[in-house]
């Protein structure tokens, strides 16, 4: 099957069709606590990560909690 192309924080990525958000973040090593994600500006909550499948041209913004005042 042909891979689909998405972007993560501006970087192009290839993933297999039927890849879920959780699959992607697990592969990237970013499925831990403290992460949040939006696809095409819409926030996908953690409870939806395992079911939400990535689509061709999805623009993913991935955020992380860091130190701050």
């Amino acid at each position: 099957m042909n891979e689909i192309t998405i972007t993560i924080n501006g970087q192009p990525h290839q993933v297999a069709p039927q890849t879920s958000v959780l699959d992607l973040l697990t592969t990237l090593g970013h499925a831990e606590q403290g992460m949040a994600l939006a696809i095409n500006q819409a926030i996908i909550s953690r409870s939806e990560w395992s079911e939400h499948l990535l689509q061709q041209d999805d623009d993913i913004s991935l955020f992380q909690a860091i130190a701050g005042g």
Binding site: N9, Q11, E32, Q33, A36, F63, Q64, A65, I66, G68
Partner: peptide
């Protein structure tokens, strides 16, 4: 304790500071 949020840098990983704060029972 306060925390900030940033766009993940896909090339350089930031320290995970969250786990020890949660372990110490901090409200975030």
């Amino acid at each position: 304790v306060t925390m900030a949020l940033k766009r993940v840098d896909m090339k350089n990983r930031d320290d995970d500071i969250l786990a020890p704060l949660i372990a110490n029972g901090m409200n975030l």
